[in-house]
Simulated scan of single mutants.
Amino acid sequence: MSKFRGAFVAIVTPFTDGQLDEQGLQDLIEFQIANGTHGIVPCGTTGESATLTHAEHRRVVELTVKTVAGRVPVLAGTGSNSTAESIELTRAAKEAGADGALLITPYYNKPSQEGLYQHFKAVAAAVDIPIILYNVPSRTAVNMLPETVARCAQIANIVGVKEATADLNQISQVIRLCPKGFAIMSGDDFTSMPTVMIGGTGVISVTSNVEPKDMAAMMDAALAGDIAKAQELHYKLLPLMQAMFIDTNPVPAKTALMMMGKIKSGLPRLPLYKMNEANEEKLKKVLVGYGLV
Rank of each mutant, 00 (worst) to 15 (best):
Y108C: 08
R91T: 02
D214H: 11
G115K: 04
G202E: 01
L270H: 04
A156G: 04
M244G: 04
A153K: 00
A101M: 02
T83A: 14
E22S: 06
A92G: 11
I87R: 08
G39R: 02
A243Q: 03
V210L: 13
T105P: 06
A141Q: 09
G100D: 02
H119N: 14
R151N: 11
I198Q: 09
Q231M: 15
T46D: 13
S205V: 05
F4Q: 05
N276Y: 03
A153R: 00
I87M: 10
L283C: 08
M259Y: 09
I246N: 11
P252S: 12
E85P: 05
E281S: 02
A141Y: 07
E281L: 07
G100M: 01
Y235W: 12
A76S: 09
V123G: 14
Q173T: 03
V65Y: 07
D128T: 09
S86E: 03
A243P: 07
L292S: 12
A256C: 12
V123I: 14
K110H: 12
N143Q: 07
E62F: 03
E147T: 03
P73W: 07
E280D: 11
T255C: 08
A7S: 15
N143E: 04
A150Y: 00
A217T: 06
S172C: 08
R151H: 07
V251A: 11
E95V: 15
G77I: 01
P271I: 03
E88V: 02
E48C: 10
D27F: 00
V65Q: 04
G266Q: 01
H38D: 15
R91P: 03
E88G: 00
S205Q: 04
M260V: 03
M144C: 14
G266C: 03
F8P: 08
M259W: 06
N276R: 00
T64I: 06
P179I: 10
Q32W: 01
A256D: 09
T13H: 07
P239L: 06
L28H: 10
Y108I: 07
N209S: 07
Q113F: 10
I132Y: 01
L177N: 04
Y108A: 14
Y108K: 02
Q113S: 14
V293R: 05
H54P: 05
S205C: 04
V123L: 08
T207E: 00
P130N: 11
A50T: 03
K262R: 15
P250W: 06
S2M: 13
L116W: 00
Q231V: 11
E48L: 10
N35D: 13
L283P: 00
F15S: 14
M259L: 15
